[in-house]
Amino acid sequence: MRVGRPIKALPQPLCDYCGARAALVKYGEAAYPYRDDHGALWACTTCQAWIGVHSRSTRNVPLGRLADAALREAKGRLHDALEPLVAGKVRRDRVNTFEARAKAIRWVAGELGFEPVPGSIHNLSLDQCELAIRHVEAFVAHRGAASPETSV
């Protein structure tokens, strides 16, 4: 009999697209989507949706929601749109890139009224990503391409 705090059950995310339980896959397994080792992933092979796990997680905690090809592409475009703002914040406030990116995401989410406010792009839906991309692009265009350093 174990004495002490109870052990939490391992997280096993559900696929947002088909509702099936995601499987934990690692490099070398048939369901692993990358050619190189990118670390363990939670994947739904039916929908070709996956999400990584926190790098130092011993319990394989997922980074966010499972993402299909369209959502992964939108997240990449959102990262690209945020990079000028992130770079400006790093230079101006001397914060690290991860902190600057998290603040940029919280800023966009707050501006657009996302509830709950995500701390990471990993938790955004496809519609939220598209809306955020348009908002950031409009913000950067309004501020002028000459000064991407903004008050994020």
Score class of each variant (00 low, 15 high):
residue 5 R to H: 06
residue 6 P to C: 07
residue 9 A to Y: 04
residue 9 A to M: 04
residue 11 P to C: 02
residue 13 P to L: 02
residue 14 L to S: 11
residue 15 C to G: 07
residue 15 C to L: 03
residue 17 Y to L: 10
residue 17 Y to S: 03
residue 17 Y to H: 08
residue 18 C to A: 07
residue 19 G to D: 04
residue 19 G to E: 02
residue 20 A to V: 02
residue 24 L to S: 00
residue 24 L to P: 05
residue 24 L to K: 04
residue 25 V to C: 13
residue 25 V to A: 14
residue 27 Y to R: 03
residue 27 Y to C: 09
residue 27 Y to E: 03
residue 28 G to D: 04
residue 30 A to Y: 03
residue 31 A to G: 00
residue 32 Y to S: 04
residue 33 P to R: 04
residue 34 Y to D: 12
residue 34 Y to G: 07
residue 35 R to H: 14
residue 35 R to Y: 13
residue 37 D to K: 01
residue 38 H to N: 14
residue 38 H to P: 00
residue 38 H to S: 11
residue 39 G to C: 14
residue 40 A to I: 08
residue 42 W to A: 00
residue 44 C to F: 05
residue 44 C to T: 03
residue 44 C to D: 01
residue 45 T to S: 06
residue 48 Q to Y: 04
residue 48 Q to I: 05
residue 49 A to K: 01
residue 50 W to F: 15
residue 50 W to K: 00
residue 52 G to M: 13
residue 52 G to T: 11
residue 53 V to Q: 00
residue 54 H to G: 08
residue 55 S to W: 12
residue 56 R to L: 15
residue 58 T to K: 09
residue 59 R to M: 12
residue 61 V to E: 12
residue 61 V to L: 03
residue 62 P to H: 02
residue 62 P to D: 05
residue 64 G to I: 05
residue 67 A to P: 10
residue 67 A to N: 07
residue 68 D to A: 12
residue 70 A to C: 05
residue 71 L to H: 08
residue 71 L to V: 07
residue 73 E to D: 13
residue 74 A to S: 11
residue 75 K to I: 10
residue 75 K to W: 09
residue 76 G to I: 10
residue 78 L to H: 04
residue 79 H to M: 12
residue 80 D to M: 12
residue 81 A to M: 04
residue 82 L to K: 05
residue 85 L to F: 09
residue 86 V to F: 09
residue 86 V to Q: 07
residue 89 K to T: 15
residue 89 K to F: 03
residue 89 K to I: 01
residue 89 K to M: 13
residue 91 R to A: 09
residue 91 R to H: 03
residue 92 R to W: 06
residue 93 D to R: 00
residue 93 D to M: 01
residue 95 V to I: 15
residue 95 V to G: 00
residue 99 E to A: 14
residue 99 E to P: 00
residue 100 A to Y: 08
residue 101 R to Y: 12
residue 102 A to R: 11
residue 102 A to W: 00
residue 103 K to I: 05
residue 104 A to S: 12
residue 107 W to I: 07
residue 107 W to C: 08
residue 107 W to R: 03
residue 109 A to Q: 02
residue 110 G to A: 10
residue 110 G to Q: 14
residue 110 G to M: 09
residue 111 E to K: 14
residue 113 G to V: 12
residue 113 G to P: 09
residue 114 F to L: 11
residue 115 E to N: 06
residue 115 E to M: 06
residue 116 P to V: 04
residue 117 V to Y: 05
residue 118 P to R: 01
residue 119 G to S: 13
residue 122 H to V: 04
residue 122 H to P: 05
residue 123 N to W: 10
residue 124 L to N: 02
residue 125 S to W: 04
residue 127 D to P: 01
residue 127 D to F: 05
residue 127 D to T: 13
residue 127 D to Q: 14
residue 128 Q to Y: 06
residue 130 E to H: 11
residue 130 E to L: 12
residue 131 L to V: 07
residue 131 L to C: 06
residue 131 L to Q: 15
residue 131 L to H: 07
residue 132 A to V: 08
residue 133 I to R: 01
residue 136 V to F: 10
residue 137 E to M: 06
residue 138 A to W: 08
residue 138 A to K: 05
residue 138 A to E: 14
residue 138 A to P: 00
residue 139 F to P: 00
residue 139 F to Q: 01
residue 139 F to D: 06
residue 139 F to M: 10
residue 140 V to Y: 12
residue 141 A to C: 03
residue 142 H to F: 11
residue 142 H to M: 10
residue 142 H to W: 13
residue 144 G to Q: 02
residue 144 G to R: 03
residue 146 A to Y: 13
residue 147 S to F: 14
residue 148 P to N: 07
residue 148 P to T: 02
residue 152 V to C: 12
